[in-house]
Amino acid sequence: MAIGTRNVSEALPFRGGGGVEFGYPEGFTLLDMVPDEMKPFIHSHWSKFPPVNPMWHYLLGVIFLFLGFFSIIGNGMVIYLFSCKKNLRSPANMFVVNLAFSDVMMMISQFPMYVYNCFNGGFWALGPLACQIHAFGGALFGLCSLMTLAAVGYDRYCVIVKAFDGGHISATKAFFIILLCWAYATGVSIPPFLGWNSYVPEGILTSCSFDYMSRDWGTRSFGLFLFIMCYCFPLTIIIFVYSQIVGAIRAHEKALREQAKKMNVENLRSNADANKQSAEVRIAKVAVSNVFLWLLTWTPYAAVVMMGLFGDQDKMTPLVSALPGLIAKTASVYNPMMYAISHPKFRLALQEVWPWFCVHEKKDDDSKSTKTENEK
C-alpha cells in the first residue's frame, strides 16, 4: 500500500547487504508514514525523526484499549447508579455524575480512533476532519473534567468550611456551576476552529491535539492562554479550597481538644458526631488524593506543551510528546474508581444493585433515630 511518496513495503522488512533485515530504510522519516492529505497539517519538526518501533504502536494501542474499556465500564456504573438510586441524587453527586459523563465521553471520542490508527500502520489514517473532531473531543471533555474536579473541591469547601454560614450548594446552584464548566470548556476548545491555533497530529502521529510546536505569536499566545486557563486556573482553585478544608478541619479538631481539656473529659463528641466528622475527613482526604493524582496526570502534558512552545524542541521526540497525552487520559479511568471505592453512599448502592461486586459497606445505624423523629 502506497503511503505518501514512499512505499511501506520498503520498510518492513527490506533487504540489506547480507540478507533480510527488519527495520526502516536509511532516511525514512516519520512524515513518510502518513498519507499525502495529512502532510500539510503536520509540523516539519516530526520529519527529523524516523518512525518509532512498531512495538510502541501495538503496546500503546493495547493500553488504550484497556483504558477505554475500564473507563466506559467505571463511569457507566456511576451514571447508572445515580439514575436508579434516588438517595444519590444530591447536589454534591451531581458534580460526580457530570465528571463521570465528561470522562466517558472523552474516552469514547478518543480511544476508537487512537486504537484504529495504532493497529492500522501507526499513523493518522482517518483524514483531517476526523483529526479535528478527535482533538476537539479531547479538549472539550478533558477540560470539562478538570473544571468539574475544581467544582467538586468547591462543594467540599462549602460543606466543611462554610457549613455554619449556610454554604451548602443547592441543586439549582450545582446545575448552574455544571453549565459553567461546560461553557468554560467549550470557550477554550473553539478558538482553533476560528484561526487561533489549530488541531494537528502530534507525537507519533496516531492522535491529534493543539499545535504546540509552531513558534509564531498566534500559536504561542494560544499556548499561554491554554496553560493559564486549563492548568494554572483550575490548579489555583483546587489548592485554595483544599488548603482551606485542611485548615478548617485542623482548627476544629484543635478547638475540640482544648475544650475537652478544660472540661476534664476525653472527647466532646457523641458517637454519631464522631462518625459524621470521620466521614467528612475521609471525603476530604479522598478529594485531596484525587487532586494529587490530577497533578501527576496533567503536569507532564502541560510541561510538554510549554517545552514545545518555548523550550528546546530537540528534546521533543515523538514518544516524549505522545506519552504525556496518554497519561492524561488515564484520569477518565481512576476518577470513577476513586469515588466508587471511597464514597459510602455509592458503595452502598453498588452493594445493593450488584451484590456480586464484592463491596462490603456497613449501613449507618440511623434508621431508628429517623423513624423516631418521624413518629414525633
Rank of each mutant, 00 (worst) to 15 (best):
A2S: 14
I3Q: 06
N7V: 09
A11C: 12
P13L: 07
G16L: 06
G18T: 14
G19R: 01
E21W: 06
Y24E: 05
G27A: 00
D32H: 00
P35Q: 06
D36W: 02
M38V: 01
I42E: 06
I42Q: 06
S44G: 11
W46A: 03
S47F: 01
G61Q: 03
F69H: 03
S71F: 02
S71Y: 02
G74M: 03
G76D: 06
Y80E: 08
L81Y: 01
F82I: 04
K86G: 07
L88I: 06
S90P: 02
P91F: 02
A92H: 10
A92T: 11
F95T: 08
F101Q: 08
D103R: 14
I108V: 13
Y116L: 12
N120W: 07
G122T: 07
A125R: 10
C131L: 02
Q132C: 10
G138S: 12
L140W: 09
C144T: 15
T148E: 01
T148R: 02
L149S: 12
G153D: 05
V159G: 03
I160V: 08
H168P: 06
H168C: 11
A171F: 03
A171C: 12
K173M: 07
F176Y: 13
L179F: 09
L180F: 15
C181K: 06
S189K: 00
P192S: 04
N197I: 03
S198E: 13
I204P: 05
I204V: 07
F210P: 00
M213K: 09
F225W: 11
I228M: 10
P234Q: 00
P234R: 01
I238P: 02
Y242S: 14
A248H: 05
R250L: 10
R250I: 05
E253T: 14
K254S: 10
A255Q: 12
Q259V: 11
A260K: 01
K261L: 13
E266I: 15
N271L: 15
N275W: 10
I283W: 12
A284V: 01
A284P: 00
K285M: 10
V286K: 04
V286P: 05
V288A: 14
W294I: 03
W294D: 08
T297R: 03
T317M: 00
S321L: 09
L323F: 11
P324H: 03
L326H: 08
S332R: 08
S332M: 04
S332P: 05
P336T: 05
Y339P: 08
L348A: 10
F357G: 13
H360W: 10
H360R: 13
K363V: 11
D365K: 11
K371D: 12
E375K: 15
E375F: 12
